[in-house]
Simulated scan of single mutants.
Amino acid sequence: MSDSSPGIVDLLGVLAYAELTAFLRLAEDAALFAPTLNDRAALGDVAATEYGHFRVLRDRIASLGADPEEAMAPFVEAIDAWHAQTRPKDWYEALVKAYVGVGIAGDFYREAARHADPSIIALVDEVLADGSRSEFAVERMRAALDADPRLCGRLALWARRMVGEALSQGQRLAAARPHLAALLVGEQGEDLAEVGRMFARLTEEHGRRMTELGLTPNG
Rank of each mutant, 00 (worst) to 15 (best):
M1E: 07
D3G: 07
D3F: 05
S5Y: 05
I8K: 01
V9T: 12
V9L: 06
D10P: 07
D10V: 08
A16D: 13
E19C: 12
E19K: 15
L20S: 08
E28V: 05
A31F: 09
L32A: 11
L37I: 07
V46R: 01
T49G: 11
T49R: 09
R55C: 09
V56S: 15
G65H: 11
V76E: 06
E77D: 14
I79K: 10
H83W: 14
T86D: 03
T86R: 01
T86E: 07
W91Q: 00
W91D: 01
Y92V: 04
L95Q: 00
L95N: 00
K97Y: 10
I104T: 11
I104D: 10
G106I: 01
F108M: 08
F108E: 09
Y109N: 06
R110Q: 14
E111L: 04
P118S: 04
A122I: 04
D125F: 02
E126S: 15
A129Q: 14
A143P: 02
D148M: 07
A156T: 14
A156C: 08
G164W: 10
S168E: 14
Q169T: 15
G170I: 07
R172W: 03
A174I: 06
A181D: 14
A182S: 15
L184T: 04
V185R: 07
G186H: 04
E190N: 05
A200R: 10
R201V: 09
E205N: 14
G207C: 00
R208K: 14
M210I: 01
E212W: 15
G214F: 01
L215W: 02
L215C: 01
P217I: 05
G219L: 05
